[in-house]
Design a protein around this nucleic acid. Structure first.
Lengths: 333, 333
DNA sequence: TCGGCGAATGAAAACGTTTACATTCGGATT
DNA sequence: AATCCGAATGTAAACGTTTTCATTCGCCGA
């Protein structure tokens, strides 16, 4: 019994007798034989592994993202190598290098990647998909979230509710999502008569939202509605309003972005933009699998995931009652 | 320039001239050379990768767990291979097999593992750490959460608040954590005079908590306090009470277990047991690294992560006001 | 100048697979 | 019965590293 025959038997090659195959499998089973993947990878050039380069792992966004990626990966029989917490460009670079030669493809989501970074640290031969990067790199595919469209839709909703004096709490300065969300807001407002706007700084943290809320409370003239660039800031802002006894949405409306699970539990429940996070991860993985399977295909492909406005009580125009379980979970039951 | 010299230069071996090393490094840089990890693993027998076998990826618990593991892994220069969504024992088995020969050690958290499973599917040579398994397997190390201790502490807290008629919403039947939490509750109650208890079924889902809440509302005699085996059920239960207009904690107190982030945003904020999830993951990774580095060490080691009661408004004895940001985040600011 | 010594480098084996190619084997056809 | 053919199996190379052992090189002391 040669190693070749064993290899063929275990890999389900055609040219091996049924008798031989069952025998080999039985013995392999008995010995708890597991192929050393390193040896296989060395000769096949495939690792059956996809790398995911994420900026962080904190919070529900990344949890959902990984879940979506994992789901699709396991459907393709692929393993998932995660790498996160990259504080700066150097860390991202070393993480990317470490993945190189260890994965068949890589999903990249990082605020530190730009065209130069990719040219320097990403081998041309390694399939890569950029997640919501805001870049337009011909070397890799892109899967984006429609931040701009979502922000437009939410702004239209706030206007439709009758709000005319709006405040926008911005995300972190360098952040691409944050920029797009602001742009959607601005563009929707632009040209509307009788609408006043005000921008407040933020950094996506709950605390920055709280500070923005305090600033609005202290202002001489309060807006009708506040649109925060993400839910965590909206939640911080809501805390400030609740603390001050300012009723939401009766006195001031509030909206966020992301639809993190906490949002629907707030008092009042938060109107927000739902980002299909798991599908986002799923789509990214499908895209990279496609690229791996047919290397000749066009690399610079862009997929955009649509967002959806989720109207809850916080956006007004009138106050919502305390919500029960059935109202919170309309799809279940 | 032989491959040997290049290998030595890149790996920082002593016996290589500074001149040679810089030259090699420069050329490697220029060519974007990245070692094929498969080849290295093949000869060294190390993959520099730790596998994490998780039952699921949904929700904040696993997000935090992965974060804790990742943090520790990256501190040791190790990669993290995650595998999840194992519906049954067979899936867990195949996932474990697939990891074998691909990782240097594996962290296992799965409801499907028991002594027989490990004997059948885990190679004796592969270092493994069982996470909160409830098993006592001499073949691997254990890192557990002190579910029993946490439940005891919470029960004592509820009694100290003056509650004497208690209800306990149980977790899923086969679940080890759930069993331990119930045991802690029961043992603390046992022997106390003038305390009445009642048990309700649940399965850790929000909906099952809601159903339990409805059942309590429909009962002829309501308890003073409800202790749910996890936060999600407590939240479902709270929805039922809110929906019925039953004020918490004035008419009925409520406590959960886990301290998921949502908990402190509930109305009233939820008294619960904080599980140090990230540290839990961190400890598990440290343990497996220790085992990998010194293979001779005792394998059957048990670490237990202590839990902590977090008292918020829901447990009474009197109603909490609406909380502002500062109260919600006492450690910040 | 030669021998010797240590430091630097080179040669080659080894790791465990897959796979192209060679070989054998059994049976069917002539 | 000899030949041939296809199916089954065996042989060996290749994958890209690390590492042991051998070799070379430069330098110092005799």
């Amino acid at each position: 019994m040669s190693v070749a025959t064993v290899s063929r038997a275990l890999n389900g090659s055609e040219s091996v007798t049924a008798r031989t195959r069952t025998h080999v499998c039985r013995v392999a089973e008995r010995l708890h034989y597991v192929p050393i993947s390193a040896a296989r990878s060395l000769v096949t050039g495939r690792t059956q592994t996809i790398g995911a380069l994420l900026p962080d792992l904190y919070g529900e966004f990344f949890s959902e993202l990984i879940r979506g990626i994992d789901l699709a990966a396991r459907a393709h029989g692929l393993h998932l190598l995660v790498s996160s917490s990259h504080g700066d460009a150097d860390e991202s670079a070393s993480a990317l290098s470490a993945m190189q030669g260890r994965v068949d493809g890589v999903l990249i989501m990082s605020p530190h990647v730009d065209a130069g970074f990719l040219r320097r640290h990403l081998a041309a031969s390694l399939p890569a998909v950029l997640l919501d990067s805001g870049l337009r790199e011909h070397r890799c595919a892109h899967v984006n979230i429609d931040n701009h469209g979502g922000a437009c839709a939410m702004t239209r909703h706030l206007l439709a509710c009758g709000h005319r004096s709006l405040a926008f709490i911005e995300g972190p300065a360098g952040n691409q999502d944050a920029r797009e969300r602001r742009r959607g807001f601005e563009e929707t407002i632009a040209g509307r008569r009788g609408v006043s706007v005000r921008f407040l700084q933020g950094d996506y943290s709950e605390e920055s939202g709280y500070r923005a809320g305090r600033a609005l409370l202290a202002a001489s003239k309060r807006p009708d509605a506040v649109f925060a660039a993400n839910d965590m800031m909206a939640i911080g802002c809501l805390s400030a309003f609740n603390e001050a006894g300012l009723p939401v949405p009766d006195e001031i409306a509030l909206a966020g972005f992301d639809d993190i699970p906490i949002s629907r539990y707030m008092h009042p429940p938060l109107t927000t933009v739902r980002v299909p996070i798991a599908q986002f991860g799923h789509a990214a993985l499908e895209r990279i699998v496609a690229q791996i399977q047919s290397p000749g295909m066009s690399k610079s492909d862009v997929t955009t995931m649509a967002c959806e406005v989720v109207v809850r009580a916080s956006s007004g125009p009138r106050a919502g009652a305390v919500r029960g379980w059935r109202e919170l979970h309309p799809t279940q039951t």
